[in-house]
């Protein structure tokens, strides 16, 4: 049932990619995404695909895990393709009833599919090789300068990591409350929309109460362990760039240069 949902899709193995600083992976993914939308030619996309294939290879994560992320957004891709196919003005290829497929439309649709696929797989590589905790750490450190603008970066990062810790607990609790109410004859599966929404009350009320109770307990436990915000805190696992991180930055830079060159020259 609900316990089958896994959050964050971290794939446990040991590779150079796994060991990279999360900031490199976050930054790299961002740059990679931008690079996908820079130029529109087949050679550029081929380069992007090859680069990604190499990274996946090094990461030692089986390819089927990468594709898993695709299933959820297949629908989105289909819609984009349909829109691009039919709504791009240009030289008509086929006309069915009022809908026209144009040469430009086909071109756009193909590029769109390639881009989105690379984009999704590219970000999957990041989430598959970085623990959620590491990601939050990386975000906190990267967004650190925003603190000067009074953005509560540490607090947001702390909230994210607490949420990540408690989501599995609350999911399990949902499962338990659901079963307990089913044992009292509750029915979550039948009826129309309104009936189903109503049926959720006996599930949601206890769940919220429990979440508040947990939050209250946790706040007390954190205070008892001297937590008083980000100020004056040290880190058990501070993020420090090592040699391989600098090399990774160089590789990404080299890729970007090639991509731009491919875009300009070809």
């Amino acid at each position: 049932m609900l316990r089958d949902i896994t959050l964050g899709q971290y794939y446990q193995t040991d590779s150079v990619i796994h060991r990279l600083d999360p900031r490199v992976k976050l930054g790299g993914t961002l740059l990679y995404m931008i690079s996908l939308f820079l130029f529109e030619n087949i050679w550029g996309h081929l380069l992007a695909a090859l680069f990604l294939a190499a990274v996946i290879r090094i990461s030692r994560v089986p390819f089927r895990f990468m594709v898993r992320g695709m299933k959820t957004i297949l629908f989105l891709i289909l819609i984009t393709v349909t829109f691009n196919l039919f709504l791009t003005p240009g030289e008509a290829l086929v006309t069915v009833w009022k809908l026209t497929i144009t040469r430009e439309g086909v071109r756009m649709a193909v590029f769109m599919v390639i881009r989105l696929t690379l984009l999704i797989i590219g970000s999957s590589v990041m989430t598959l090789t970085t623990t959620p905790n590491n990601l939050t750490d990386g975000l906190e450190k990267m967004l650190g300068p925003l603190k000067l603008l009074k953005v509560p970066v540490h607090e947001v990062a702390m909230m994210m990591s607490i949420a990540l810790r408690f989501i599995p607990i609350l999911l399990e609790e949902t499962d338990k409350i659901m079963k307990a109410q089913m044992a009292r004859g509750a029915d979550f599966d039948t009826g129309n929309l309104i009936q189903r929404a109503k049926a959720l009350v006996p599930l949601l009320v206890p769940l919220f109460i429990s979440a508040f109770r947990r939050a209250n307990d946790l706040a007390m436990a954190m205070e008892a362990r001297c937590y008083r915000g980000g100020e004056g805190r040290t880190k058990m696992k501070p993020l420090i760039y090592r040699r391989c991180d600098y090399i990774a930055y160089l590789v990404i830079l080299a890729y970007l240069v090639c991509k731009v060159l491919a875009g300009v020259l070809l």
């Binding site: 338990k176 109410q181 044992a183 009292r184 009350v201 206890p206 109460i209």
Partner: peptide
């Protein structure tokens, strides 16, 4: 489920109605 009643561990975590009586009514109402 009405013939074989199951009371879970920490069953008080399933209480949700505004008063005691209404909560006990939930089962027979279903």
């Amino acid at each position: 489920r009405s013939k074989v009643g199951l009371v879970f561990q920490y069953p008080e975590h399933q209480l949700f109605e505004t008063d005691v009586f209404a909560d006990v009514c939930f089962g027979p109402k279903n």
